[in-house]
Amino acid sequence: MRTPHVDVALFKRIMGGRPAESTRLAAPRVRTAAPVGAWLSEDGAVRLDIFDDGTYDGQVAGRKRHAHGTYTIDGATMTLSDESGLYTAVALGEGELEMAGYRLGPAL
């Protein structure tokens, strides 16, 4: 099985905006289920909708193209696989997600 390549620099360029001050989350608990729901960065620039059917939709303020694809979960990491072929790692923390330097919390 081929290990997915995560091009963080490219993803940061695609995502734009301001990265989080710290990229380290507290030691996450191991997840067995996806964090289904809507997730949003503090500044509202990045939104990630995670669906229970194994798909996701990502949106970035100022970008016309939405990211669509599937995800897999391996312990405390969720890997997004965009339809364009881009793979992105998402750290699953307690009550928050971290993706390419952005911290996302539950959208209310």
Rank of each mutant, 00 (worst) to 15 (best):
R13K: 12
T3P: 00
G16E: 04
A34N: 08
A67I: 06
A91C: 02
A33W: 07
D53G: 04
A67P: 08
T88S: 10
T70L: 07
Y56K: 08
G62M: 05
P35T: 15
A38Y: 12
L40W: 05
G44M: 01
T88G: 07
A38P: 03
I50P: 09
G75V: 01
R65P: 00
G101N: 09
G85V: 07
G44E: 03
V36P: 03
S81Y: 04
G37V: 03
G75T: 02
V60M: 14
D7W: 05
A9Q: 12
A89L: 15
H68W: 02
P35H: 15
E98C: 00
G93Q: 13
A76I: 12
Y71H: 04
I50W: 12
G101Y: 05
Y71W: 06
D82C: 05
T70G: 08
M99V: 14
L92Y: 11
A45V: 03
D49N: 09
D82T: 09
G101C: 01
Y102F: 14
L48N: 06
R47P: 02
T79F: 05
K12L: 13
W39K: 03
A45R: 11
L40S: 00
A20Y: 02
D53T: 01
G37H: 03
L40Y: 05
L86W: 06
R29T: 02
R18C: 00
A107N: 01
E42Q: 13
P28A: 07
A76K: 08
A61Q: 08
A26T: 10
T55K: 09
V30K: 13
T77W: 02
E21Y: 07
Y87T: 04
F51E: 14
A89K: 15
E96I: 10
R31S: 14
R2T: 04
M99N: 01
P106Y: 12
H68F: 10
D52A: 12
T79W: 04
V60I: 13
R31G: 01
D43E: 07
P19W: 00
H5G: 04
A34T: 10
A89W: 14
V46H: 04
L108T: 14
R24P: 07
F11E: 11
E98A: 04
K12S: 10
R47V: 08
L86H: 09
G105A: 15
S22W: 14
S22L: 15
D49C: 08
P106E: 14
H68Q: 03
R63D: 11
M1K: 02
L25F: 06
S81N: 10
A89D: 15
E98T: 11
V90P: 01
A45I: 02
A91I: 09
K64S: 02
